[in-house]
């Protein structure tokens, strides 16, 4: 369970919003630039801090979705109804605005090409964000680690990074499997239910030496998938989890 320690203090830095992209009706990605940003490990997150004119502050954590790159990072943000920070990021913040953040944070839920695999990534909703950083790193590094992404979304229109995932899936060593839990196109031939043990068995296949699993999504999904993977023989230490949910926003 060793990891990368963060030396010194994680100072707040001002990043500027270089671009804002609508991923789905409720999800945006922000491309942020900061000279002080040294890069990150795929899977890590940042703390974002907003300050009102009267000094009131609010902080939240967001996973980094881009591949590691000095000076640049992307965050993917889901608009949480009734939230405080996510509505500001999705609706108010615009290109050329600045955003205060510090990081990268978290040294356990991380993967780089050197960690190898086979790699099983399981995502629910916006929990795909840190896994996307791993997939982008994998592509940028030219890694051929056999990799499967099993990704649960409510509907076709709510699949985050859908077109980029289609492009990435041209790589024969990367397999991407979607399940659409609430609605699906008339001609949809894929899964239409929540991820369960049977789906994991079909998608993950036989457990091979070196297998690593990363699971990120709402608590119910993470608990179920992690438990099922243990049942399938994954060593608990080979299963890393991160929770995403509407709490707080």
């Amino acid at each position: 369970m060793a990891g990368t320690a963060v030396p010194g203090r994680l100072a707040w830095q001002l990043a500027s919003v270089a671009a804002k992209r609508q991923e789905t009706p409720r999800v945006i990605s922000l491309r942020l630039e900061s000279d002080a940003w040294a890069g990150h490990l795929p899977g890590q997150h940042v703390d974002v801090r907003l300050t009102a004119e009267d000094g009131y502050q609010a902080q939240r954590s967001y996973s980094i979705s881009s591949a590691p790159e000095p000076g640049v990072l992307e965050l993917t943000v889901e608009d949480i109804p009734d939230g405080e920070v996510s509505p500001y990021l999705t609706e108010v913040l615009q290109p050329a605005d600045r955003l205060e953040l510090r990081g990268p944070i978290g040294g356990y839920f991380t993967w780089t090409a050197a960690d190898g695999g086979p790699l099983l990534l399981v995502a629910g909703g916006s929990g795909v964000a840190p896994l996307m950083s791993m997939l982008r790193e994998r592509a940028a590094a030219g890694s051929d680690v056999p990799t499967t992404l099993l990704y649960s979304s409510r509907s076709w229109d709510e699949i985050i990074y859908r077109e980029e995932l289609e492009r990435l899936a041209a790589d024969p060593t990367l397999r991407i499997v979607h399940t659409l839990t609430r609605s699906h196109p008339a001609d949809w031939a894929g899964y239409t239910r929540r991820i369960d043990a049977a789906m994991l068995a079909e998608v993950a296949g036989a457990l091979l030496p070196g297998s690593l699993a990363y699971v990120c999504g709402p608590t119910r999904l993470v608990e179920q998938v992690a438990t099922d993977l243990v049942t399938r023989g994954y060593p608990p230490a080979a299963i890393k989890t991160e929770r995403f949910g509407p709490t707080g926003g």
Partner: peptide
Amino acid sequence: MAGSFISRGFRGRRRE
């Protein structure tokens, strides 16, 4: 930087 930067347009929904 801390204490000087204001997030443009942020009002904060939840006051104490």
